[in-house]
Write a protein that binds this DNA or RNA. Structure first.
Ligand SMILES: [Mn+2]
Ligand SMILES: [Mn+2]
Ligand SMILES: [Zn+2]
Ligand SMILES: [Zn+2]
Lengths: 138, 138
DNA sequence: CTGACCTATGCAACGGAAGTGCATTTATTG
DNA sequence: CAATAAATGCACTTCCGTTGCATAGGTCAG
Protein backbone atom coordinates (compact mmCIF):
# COMPACT_ATOMS: atom_id res chain seq x y z
CA UNK A 1 0.00 0.00 0.00
CA UNK A 2 2.77 2.37 0.95
CA UNK A 3 4.51 1.52 -2.32
CA UNK A 4 1.54 2.82 -4.26
CA UNK A 5 1.55 6.06 -2.31
CA UNK A 6 5.23 6.42 -3.02
CA UNK A 7 4.81 5.64 -6.68
CA UNK A 8 2.09 8.26 -7.04
CA UNK A 9 4.08 10.84 -5.10
CA UNK A 10 7.11 10.16 -7.24
CA UNK A 11 5.02 10.91 -10.30
CA UNK A 12 3.63 14.11 -8.88
CA UNK A 13 0.20 12.71 -8.14
CA UNK A 14 -1.34 13.23 -4.73
CA UNK A 15 -2.20 9.82 -3.32
CA UNK A 16 -5.82 10.25 -2.36
CA UNK A 17 -7.88 7.26 -1.23
CA UNK A 18 -9.69 7.06 -4.54
CA UNK A 19 -6.53 7.28 -6.59
CA UNK A 20 -4.86 4.53 -4.61
CA UNK A 21 -7.87 2.31 -5.16
CA UNK A 22 -7.87 2.97 -8.89
CA UNK A 23 -4.15 2.35 -9.12
CA UNK A 24 -4.57 -0.92 -7.25
CA UNK A 25 -7.39 -1.93 -9.55
CA UNK A 26 -5.29 -1.27 -12.63
CA UNK A 27 -2.32 -3.09 -11.13
CA UNK A 28 -4.36 -6.21 -10.50
CA UNK A 29 -5.66 -6.36 -14.05
CA UNK A 30 -3.40 -7.58 -16.80
CA UNK A 31 -5.51 -6.09 -19.57
CA UNK A 32 -6.20 -2.59 -20.83
CA UNK A 33 -9.04 -0.92 -18.96
CA UNK A 34 -11.69 1.53 -20.05
CA UNK A 35 -13.34 4.25 -18.03
CA UNK A 36 -16.55 2.23 -18.08
CA UNK A 37 -14.72 -0.78 -16.64
CA UNK A 38 -13.53 1.30 -13.72
CA UNK A 39 -16.95 2.88 -13.36
CA UNK A 40 -18.49 -0.53 -12.87
CA UNK A 41 -15.83 -1.61 -10.43
CA UNK A 42 -16.37 1.51 -8.31
CA UNK A 43 -20.08 1.98 -8.66
CA UNK A 44 -20.36 4.53 -5.92
CA UNK A 45 -17.66 6.81 -7.25
CA UNK A 46 -18.49 9.54 -9.70
CA UNK A 47 -17.62 9.03 -13.34
CA UNK A 48 -16.03 12.44 -13.61
CA UNK A 49 -13.65 11.75 -10.78
CA UNK A 50 -12.60 8.49 -12.36
CA UNK A 51 -12.23 10.21 -15.71
CA UNK A 52 -10.09 12.97 -14.30
CA UNK A 53 -8.04 10.50 -12.31
CA UNK A 54 -7.17 8.66 -15.50
CA UNK A 55 -6.29 11.91 -17.22
CA UNK A 56 -4.07 12.93 -14.32
CA UNK A 57 -2.42 9.52 -14.29
CA UNK A 58 -1.83 9.84 -18.01
CA UNK A 59 -0.34 13.30 -17.84
CA UNK A 60 1.96 12.26 -15.02
CA UNK A 61 3.13 9.12 -16.77
CA UNK A 62 1.43 6.65 -14.46
CA UNK A 63 -0.67 5.12 -17.24
CA UNK A 64 -0.65 5.32 -21.01
CA UNK A 65 -3.68 5.54 -23.22
CA UNK A 66 -4.41 2.80 -25.71
CA UNK A 67 -6.41 3.14 -28.88
CA UNK A 68 -7.27 -0.42 -29.86
CA UNK A 69 -9.72 0.45 -32.60
CA UNK A 70 -12.84 -0.44 -30.63
CA UNK A 71 -13.74 3.21 -30.32
CA UNK A 72 -13.33 3.13 -26.57
CA UNK A 73 -10.27 4.61 -24.92
CA UNK A 74 -8.35 2.21 -22.72
CA UNK A 75 -5.57 2.65 -20.21
CA UNK A 76 -2.84 0.52 -18.73
CA UNK A 77 -0.14 1.11 -16.14
CA UNK A 78 3.20 2.07 -17.55
CA UNK A 79 6.07 -0.32 -17.08
CA UNK A 80 8.70 0.63 -14.48
CA UNK A 81 11.23 1.63 -17.10
CA UNK A 82 8.83 3.40 -19.44
CA UNK A 83 8.99 7.15 -19.94
CA UNK A 84 5.80 7.96 -21.79
CA UNK A 85 5.88 11.58 -20.66
CA UNK A 86 8.91 12.34 -22.80
CA UNK A 87 8.55 10.06 -25.78
CA UNK A 88 6.10 7.31 -26.54
CA UNK A 89 7.09 3.87 -25.43
CA UNK A 90 6.26 2.34 -28.77
CA UNK A 91 5.24 -1.17 -27.87
CA UNK A 92 2.39 -2.77 -29.73
CA UNK A 93 -1.03 -3.82 -28.48
CA UNK A 94 -3.07 -6.88 -29.18
CA UNK A 95 -6.84 -6.93 -29.28
CA UNK A 96 -8.60 -10.29 -29.07
CA UNK A 97 -11.64 -10.63 -31.31
CA UNK A 98 -12.90 -13.43 -29.10
CA UNK A 99 -12.72 -12.22 -25.51
CA UNK A 100 -12.58 -8.58 -26.58
CA UNK A 101 -9.66 -7.82 -24.28
CA UNK A 102 -6.66 -5.72 -25.19
CA UNK A 103 -3.20 -6.34 -23.80
CA UNK A 104 0.13 -4.57 -23.91
CA UNK A 105 2.94 -6.48 -25.54
CA UNK A 106 5.59 -4.37 -23.92
CA UNK A 107 8.42 -6.53 -25.18
CA UNK A 108 7.39 -6.00 -28.79
CA UNK A 109 8.40 -2.61 -30.06
CA UNK A 110 7.00 -1.10 -33.22
CA UNK A 111 9.55 -1.56 -35.99
CA UNK A 112 11.01 1.46 -37.70
CA UNK A 113 9.27 2.35 -40.95
CA UNK A 114 10.83 4.16 -43.86
CA UNK A 115 8.46 6.88 -44.95
CA UNK A 116 8.29 8.71 -48.27
CA UNK A 117 10.18 11.99 -48.67
CA UNK A 118 8.64 14.78 -46.61
CA UNK A 119 6.90 12.70 -43.97
CA UNK A 120 8.22 13.01 -40.43
CA UNK A 121 6.93 10.52 -37.89
CA UNK A 122 6.67 11.56 -34.27
CA UNK A 123 4.46 8.84 -32.92
CA UNK A 124 3.08 5.48 -33.92
CA UNK A 125 0.28 3.14 -33.00
CA UNK A 126 0.25 -0.50 -33.96
CA UNK A 127 -2.61 -2.77 -32.98
CA UNK A 128 -2.79 -6.41 -33.95
CA UNK A 129 -6.14 -8.14 -33.84
CA UNK A 130 -6.88 -11.82 -33.66
CA UNK A 131 -7.03 -14.52 -31.01
CA UNK A 132 -5.16 -14.09 -27.78
CA UNK A 133 -3.17 -16.74 -25.92
CA UNK A 134 -5.94 -17.40 -23.42
CA UNK A 135 -8.56 -17.90 -26.13
CA UNK A 136 -6.40 -19.96 -28.51
CA UNK A 137 -5.21 -22.16 -25.66
CA UNK A 138 -8.32 -24.27 -25.39
CA UNK B 1 -18.98 9.16 -65.30
CA UNK B 2 -19.81 5.91 -66.95
CA UNK B 3 -16.66 4.44 -65.43
CA UNK B 4 -17.97 5.16 -61.96
CA UNK B 5 -21.25 3.46 -62.76
CA UNK B 6 -19.37 0.47 -64.05
CA UNK B 7 -17.08 0.38 -61.03
CA UNK B 8 -20.03 0.42 -58.66
CA UNK B 9 -21.89 -2.19 -60.64
CA UNK B 10 -18.83 -4.42 -60.67
CA UNK B 11 -18.75 -4.22 -56.90
CA UNK B 12 -22.42 -5.04 -56.54
CA UNK B 13 -23.46 -1.51 -55.64
CA UNK B 14 -26.37 0.06 -57.47
CA UNK B 15 -25.19 3.30 -58.99
CA UNK B 16 -27.73 5.79 -57.75
CA UNK B 17 -27.23 9.51 -58.32
CA UNK B 18 -26.21 10.08 -54.72
CA UNK B 19 -23.76 7.20 -54.69
CA UNK B 20 -22.08 8.38 -57.85
CA UNK B 21 -21.67 11.84 -56.36
CA UNK B 22 -20.18 10.44 -53.19
CA UNK B 23 -17.83 8.21 -55.12
CA UNK B 24 -16.73 11.15 -57.23
CA UNK B 25 -16.17 13.23 -54.12
CA UNK B 26 -14.00 10.54 -52.59
CA UNK B 27 -12.09 10.07 -55.82
CA UNK B 28 -11.23 13.74 -56.03
CA UNK B 29 -9.86 13.87 -52.51
CA UNK B 30 -6.48 12.39 -51.78
CA UNK B 31 -7.08 12.16 -48.05
CA UNK B 32 -9.19 10.00 -45.80
CA UNK B 33 -12.71 11.34 -45.40
CA UNK B 34 -15.12 11.30 -42.49
CA UNK B 35 -18.89 11.13 -42.58
CA UNK B 36 -18.98 14.71 -41.33
CA UNK B 37 -16.77 15.81 -44.23
CA UNK B 38 -19.20 14.32 -46.68
CA UNK B 39 -22.14 15.73 -44.77
CA UNK B 40 -20.74 19.22 -45.20
CA UNK B 41 -20.01 18.70 -48.87
CA UNK B 42 -23.57 17.53 -49.50
CA UNK B 43 -25.50 19.71 -47.13
CA UNK B 44 -28.88 18.90 -48.56
CA UNK B 45 -28.46 15.14 -48.37
CA UNK B 46 -29.49 13.28 -45.26
CA UNK B 47 -26.79 12.08 -42.92
CA UNK B 48 -28.30 8.61 -42.69
CA UNK B 49 -28.13 8.14 -46.42
CA UNK B 50 -24.50 9.19 -46.49
CA UNK B 51 -23.78 6.95 -43.53
CA UNK B 52 -25.41 3.94 -45.13
CA UNK B 53 -23.76 4.67 -48.44
CA UNK B 54 -20.36 4.51 -46.78
CA UNK B 55 -21.29 1.27 -45.04
CA UNK B 56 -22.47 -0.22 -48.32
CA UNK B 57 -19.29 0.91 -50.06
CA UNK B 58 -17.26 -0.64 -47.28
CA UNK B 59 -19.06 -3.96 -47.35
CA UNK B 60 -18.71 -4.18 -51.11
CA UNK B 61 -15.03 -3.33 -51.10
CA UNK B 62 -15.35 0.09 -52.70
CA UNK B 63 -13.82 1.88 -49.72
CA UNK B 64 -11.95 0.77 -46.62
CA UNK B 65 -12.41 2.20 -43.18
CA UNK B 66 -9.52 3.90 -41.46
CA UNK B 67 -9.05 4.27 -37.74
CA UNK B 68 -6.46 7.01 -37.36
CA UNK B 69 -6.84 7.45 -33.62
CA UNK B 70 -8.77 10.70 -33.79
CA UNK B 71 -11.93 8.95 -32.68
CA UNK B 72 -13.64 9.68 -35.97
CA UNK B 73 -14.05 6.99 -38.57
CA UNK B 74 -12.59 7.82 -41.93
CA UNK B 75 -12.90 6.21 -45.33
CA UNK B 76 -10.85 6.11 -48.51
CA UNK B 77 -11.34 4.47 -51.88
CA UNK B 78 -9.67 1.12 -52.28
CA UNK B 79 -6.85 0.84 -54.77
CA UNK B 80 -7.61 -0.98 -58.04
CA UNK B 81 -5.72 -4.08 -56.98
CA UNK B 82 -6.87 -4.17 -53.38
CA UNK B 83 -9.12 -6.92 -52.14
CA UNK B 84 -10.28 -5.70 -48.76
CA UNK B 85 -13.36 -7.90 -48.85
CA UNK B 86 -11.31 -11.06 -48.53
CA UNK B 87 -8.32 -10.04 -46.47
CA UNK B 88 -7.18 -6.67 -45.24
CA UNK B 89 -4.88 -4.76 -47.50
CA UNK B 90 -2.43 -4.02 -44.73
CA UNK B 91 -0.95 -0.72 -45.79
CA UNK B 92 -0.24 1.87 -43.17
CA UNK B 93 -1.80 5.26 -42.63
CA UNK B 94 -0.28 8.57 -41.74
CA UNK B 95 -2.00 11.22 -39.69
CA UNK B 96 -0.62 14.75 -39.76
CA UNK B 97 -0.66 16.54 -36.42
CA UNK B 98 -0.49 19.85 -38.22
CA UNK B 99 -3.14 19.81 -40.93
CA UNK B 100 -5.05 17.03 -39.23
CA UNK B 101 -5.39 15.04 -42.45
CA UNK B 102 -4.93 11.31 -42.80
CA UNK B 103 -3.56 9.65 -45.91
CA UNK B 104 -3.14 6.11 -47.14
CA UNK B 105 0.43 5.02 -47.78
CA UNK B 106 -0.63 2.16 -49.97
CA UNK B 107 2.91 1.31 -50.99
CA UNK B 108 3.95 0.78 -47.38
CA UNK B 109 2.73 -2.52 -46.04
CA UNK B 110 2.67 -3.33 -42.35
CA UNK B 111 5.69 -5.50 -41.57
CA UNK B 112 5.20 -8.97 -40.20
CA UNK B 113 5.46 -9.17 -36.43
CA UNK B 114 6.48 -12.20 -34.43
CA UNK B 115 4.01 -12.64 -31.63
CA UNK B 116 4.39 -14.57 -28.39
CA UNK B 117 3.22 -18.19 -28.24
CA UNK B 118 -0.55 -18.48 -28.40
CA UNK B 119 -1.32 -15.21 -30.14
CA UNK B 120 -2.78 -15.47 -33.63
CA UNK B 121 -3.00 -12.25 -35.63
CA UNK B 122 -5.77 -11.88 -38.20
CA UNK B 123 -5.64 -8.18 -38.78
CA UNK B 124 -3.45 -5.19 -38.09
CA UNK B 125 -3.65 -1.43 -37.92
CA UNK B 126 -0.61 0.79 -38.04
CA UNK B 127 -0.91 4.55 -37.89
CA UNK B 128 2.06 6.87 -37.92
CA UNK B 129 1.59 10.41 -36.66
CA UNK B 130 3.70 13.43 -37.34
CA UNK B 131 4.12 16.02 -40.06
CA UNK B 132 3.02 15.21 -43.58
CA UNK B 133 4.84 16.07 -46.78
CA UNK B 134 2.64 19.07 -47.51
CA UNK B 135 3.16 20.55 -44.06
CA UNK B 136 6.88 19.85 -43.80
CA UNK B 137 7.45 21.20 -47.30
CA UNK B 138 7.41 24.84 -46.38
C1' DC C 1 -5.99 26.94 16.41
C1' DT C 2 -7.96 29.42 12.49
C1' DG C 3 -8.84 31.39 8.32
C1' DA C 4 -7.19 31.53 3.50
C1' DC C 5 -6.21 28.80 -0.16
C1' DC C 6 -5.70 25.10 -3.33
C1' DT C 7 -6.98 20.67 -4.86
C1' DA C 8 -10.03 16.84 -5.39
C1' DT C 9 -14.63 15.35 -5.76
C1' DG C 10 -19.55 15.36 -7.08
C1' DC C 11 -23.51 16.74 -9.84
C1' DA C 12 -25.50 18.26 -14.01
C1' DA C 13 -25.43 19.09 -18.48
C1' DC C 14 -23.48 19.28 -23.26
C1' DG C 15 -21.83 17.72 -27.84
C1' DG C 16 -20.16 14.69 -31.30
C1' DA C 17 -20.53 10.61 -33.56
C1' DA C 18 -22.42 6.02 -34.55
C1' DG C 19 -26.40 3.58 -35.16
C1' DT C 20 -31.63 2.01 -35.54
C1' DG C 21 -36.83 1.88 -36.58
C1' DC C 22 -40.08 3.12 -39.50
C1' DA C 23 -42.44 5.61 -43.11
C1' DT C 24 -41.96 7.11 -47.84
C1' DT C 25 -40.16 7.56 -52.22
C1' DT C 26 -37.84 5.59 -56.19
C1' DA C 27 -36.35 1.90 -59.09
C1' DT C 28 -36.95 -2.92 -61.01
C1' DT C 29 -39.25 -6.57 -62.99
C1' DG C 30 -42.82 -9.73 -64.35
C1' DC D 1 -49.60 -1.49 -64.92
C1' DA D 2 -49.16 -3.92 -60.44
C1' DA D 3 -46.23 -6.09 -57.20
C1' DT D 4 -41.95 -6.06 -55.14
C1' DA D 5 -37.54 -4.70 -53.63
C1' DA D 6 -34.20 -1.16 -52.68
C1' DA D 7 -32.84 3.45 -51.43
C1' DT D 8 -33.78 7.61 -49.02
C1' DG D 9 -35.42 10.75 -45.29
C1' DC D 10 -36.85 11.85 -40.58
C1' DA D 11 -36.85 11.11 -35.77
C1' DC D 12 -34.87 9.36 -32.13
C1' DT D 13 -31.48 6.72 -29.20
C1' DT D 14 -27.23 5.39 -27.10
C1' DC D 15 -22.59 5.70 -25.95
C1' DC D 16 -18.65 8.07 -24.68
C1' DG D 17 -15.84 11.88 -23.76
C1' DT D 18 -15.81 16.32 -21.85
C1' DT D 19 -16.74 20.75 -19.31
C1' DG D 20 -18.77 24.24 -15.80
C1' DC D 21 -19.70 25.07 -11.50
C1' DA D 22 -20.56 24.22 -6.67
C1' DT D 23 -18.88 21.82 -2.58
C1' DA D 24 -15.85 19.11 0.45
C1' DG D 25 -11.36 18.22 2.22
C1' DG D 26 -6.56 18.73 2.99
C1' DT D 27 -2.48 22.13 3.56
C1' DC D 28 -0.17 25.88 5.32
C1' DA D 29 0.90 30.77 6.97
C1' DG D 30 0.07 33.61 10.66
MN1 LIG E 1 0.52 -0.57 -23.63
MN1 LIG F 1 -5.89 3.24 -46.59
ZN1 LIG G 1 -9.03 -13.55 -26.04
ZN1 LIG H 1 -0.17 18.01 -42.81
Amino acid sequence: MKEIEKKLNDNGVRPTAMRILIYKYLAEKDVATSLTDIEMAFAKADRTTLFRTLKTFEKQGVVHQIDDGTGVQKYALCEPGCNCELEQDLHLHFHCNNCDETVCLTEHKIPHINLPEGFVAEDANLVLKGICDKCSGQ
